[in-house]
């Protein structure tokens, strides 16, 4: 996966009384951290890439899909098939088991049951939860819940996984384990991970670090 996958052109997002996010150009790496202080525009950029938010100016193409002109239903479809999300506070469905939470996305994609079962089992084993498939989120630790969230994000075989502060609520051991798993999945599944973070543990693992300040790229370091 070394092709151009995200192309942003003169992108900006303006909030009332808040700093604007401007001009991020190309993101073409596979394990990229977007870093910067709070309010620098990390989450906003991820939201725009994920089709959750629209830019004020400019346009953005993700794998050739021009997001700015998409209708709401097209954006939903785009997110379902191209983007996996990992949120800071896990955001699992509390009434579903780990297995069901992971399977849920594939159901929305109308994937056949045997394929779903196979992939869910494989993913949960990969994230180290093969023996907790029937546990509900309330029965799992924070680290385990976030691993289910990663499995869920990967279930739809997305082009990207957008992870917004995925380790912020985790202790060190859980954070390292999660990062190991994501790095391994990145390698095995070939899926690009894009993190918004100021967690040093994530930054150290990233192969590219884009630093934002006041909505502008301050540095872009490839390792």
């Amino acid at each position: 996966m070394s092709h151009l996958v995200i192309e942003a052109n003169k992108l900006s997002k303006v909030y009332e009384g808040v700093v604007p996010v401007k001009a991020v150009n190309e993101v073409d790496n596979e394990f990229t951290a977007i870093v910067g202080p709070s309010g620098s525009g990390k989450t906003t950029l991820l939201n725009i890439i994920g089709g959750l938010d629209r830019p004020t100016t400019g346009n953005i193409k993700v794998n050739g899909n021009e997001l700015s002109g998409m209708k709401p239903n097209q954006l939903i479809d785009f997110r379902l098939n191209h983007i996996g999300f990992v949120f800071q506070s896990y955001n699992l469905i509390p009434v579903l088991t780990a297995k069901e939470n992971t399977e849920f996305i594939m159901l929305l994609q109308k994937i056949a049951k045997n394929q779903r079962d196979e992939r869910v089992e494989s993913l949960l084993k990969e994230v180290g939860l093969g023996d907790r498939m029937d546990a509900r989120p309330s029965q799992l630790s924070g680290g385990q819940q976030q691993r289910v969230a990663v499995a869920r994000a990967l279930a739809s075989k997305p082009d990207f996984v957008l992870a917004d502060e995925p380790t912020a609520n985790l202790d060190s051991a859980s954070a390292f384990k999660l990062l190991d798993i994501m790095a391994q999945l990145n390698k095995e599944e070939g899926i690009t991970f894009l993190f918004s973070t100021h967690d040093q543990r994530v930054i150290e693992r990233a192969r590219r670090v884009i630093t934002l300040e006041d909505g502008m790229i301050k540095s872009d370091e490839k390792r």
């Binding site: 939903i76 479809d77 997110r79 999300f85 506070s89 955001n91 469905i93 509390p94 996305i105």
Partner: peptide, 14 residues
């Protein structure tokens, strides 16, 4: 709200 937002974010239609 947050959970419903997540469902919509990950691709559940309205």
């Amino acid at each position: 709200v947050k959970e419903i937002g997540m469902l919509m974010a990950v691709g559940m239609t309205k």
